[in-house]
Amino acid sequence: MSGIDPARVLSEVSAFLHDEALALDERRWSDWLDLFTVDCEYWVPAWKSEDEQTSNPGRELSLIYYGARAGLEDRVWRVESRRSVASAVLPRTQHLISNVRVTGSREIPGVSGAAEIDVRCEWTVHQYLPKERAVELFFGRYEVCLVRHPEGLRIARKKIVLLNDYLPARIDFYSL
């Protein structure tokens, strides 16, 4: 932690998370993908019971699990292809991020100024479905590992805990 000012790091990662949320809400999918490293892990665990999520994506079911950004790129391609009726009329989404905490940070040896930062925060997404004229709400917790690259922060790992997993007919990356 030496040499890293906690208040500055908190302010920096909070701004990053807010930017990520806004990229989703403004449907700037390409900007959003750029926030992830190529080999990032993106994981939305399923639930095993009322209280316990799945913890091993190699042996247990997830709602979404990707070991690389390519999985997210497929999803963005699908939406942009206009060939998926599920996203023919997109929800208007609003991400709110709160309770941001830096839970750890490590300098990356041998790379000047580089660091990994562990962040946790709470999130809600309100979304309005123009076709159904209905409102949906999703909420949970993000557990994110950020890496500092020369061009800024990137997401190396994002675990999305979705607390209300009794799902409506559709849920995709832009609602999480």
Binding site: R75, S87, A88, L167, P168
Partner: peptide, 16 residues
């Protein structure tokens, strides 16, 4: 996960 579920790439098109 790729195909099925409300969060998959096929089921949501069916349910829609």
């Amino acid at each position: 996960e790729d195909f099925f579920n409300a969060s998959g790439l096929a089921t949501p098109d069916d349910t829609t």
